[in-house]
Design a protein around this nucleic acid. Structure first.
Length: 225
DNA sequence: GCAAGGATCTAA
DNA sequence: TAGATCCTTGCC
């Protein structure tokens, strides 16, 4: 597994070192523009601590859902019982269930009442892999956290975590710079029927942990600045 | 290719 | 209150 990760992110530190060395993303990060947050989250490490077990993955794929005139966003028609987390101040989770089957985890962004969030689509698992394999009932590392439903299942993110803070000691995102070693690309969001042309999906280019069959189609590389 | 599966929203 | 929709997945 370590070789597999090295191949993609040249990650040398183990998870405990990483947590000890790196800062958590703070509130100000989440209050930024949603598209910037979605792009900047690529390469960061999502961490969930369950007892003595550390579950962690490098964020490899995100999608932005804006609060301003984005017809594909759950927030488009205003506040409802389902989406009210999206209208809170940034830095918390918004969890919803799709097709009555799969949970999907979003990271709420921007100021209160904006109604924007970033969908967590895929992770590169780096810690707690056995637990993820048990939950997903597969040992295939590429498939463990590929797609929003699978990511939420691996991390066991359900309604209990709706509105949960990401500034928590057991649930946070590390401010790493791993993405500098990879090319980030953007393209169309997946599985939506409105405004599907908007390039609001961000992902690590040519990465097998990323979902979607057409990762290169309609993809545009973003050069590291 | 398509069914599972249930909450949510809209229209009446 | 009925009917359509849905930021998906894994099966056929």
């Amino acid at each position: 597994m370590r070789n597999l990760i090295r191949q993609w992110l040249a990650l040398d530190a183990d998870i405990n070192e990483l947590i000890a060395q790196k800062e958590k993303l703070n509130k100000d990060f989440y209050l930024q523009q949603t598209l910037k947050v979605a792009e900047d989250l690529i390469g960061k490490v999502f961490v969930k601590i369950e007892g003595k077990e550390i579950l962690a993955g490098i964020i490899a794929e995100t999608e932005a859902y804006l609060g301003d005139n984005d017809r594909a966003s759950h927030s488009y028609r205003g506040v409802s019982k389902r989406n009210e987390a999206m209208f809170e101040e940034g830095g918390i989770l918004y969890i919803y269930k799709i097709f009555g089957i799969h949970y999907c985890a979003n990271i709420v962004t921007e100021q209160k009442d904006v109604g924007s969030a970033v969908l967590l689509r895929s992770l590169i698992p780096i810690s707690g892999i056995e637990k993820m394999q048990n939950r997903r009932k597969t040992s295939d590392l590429y498939k463990l956290c590929r797609g929003p439903g699978n990511s939420a299942k691996s991390l066991s993110l359900d309604y209990l975590f709706n509105k949960h803070s990401l500034l928590d000691d057991k649930l946070f995102i590390l401010n790493t710079s791993l993405s500098e070693k990879y090319i980030i690309a953007k393209g169309s969001r997946i599985g939506i029927s409105k405004d599907e042309h908007l390039p609001y999906r961000f992902f690590i280019y040519n990465c097998p942990f990323v979902s979607g069959k057409k990762i290169f189609q309609n993809a545009q590389k973003i050069l590291n600045s």
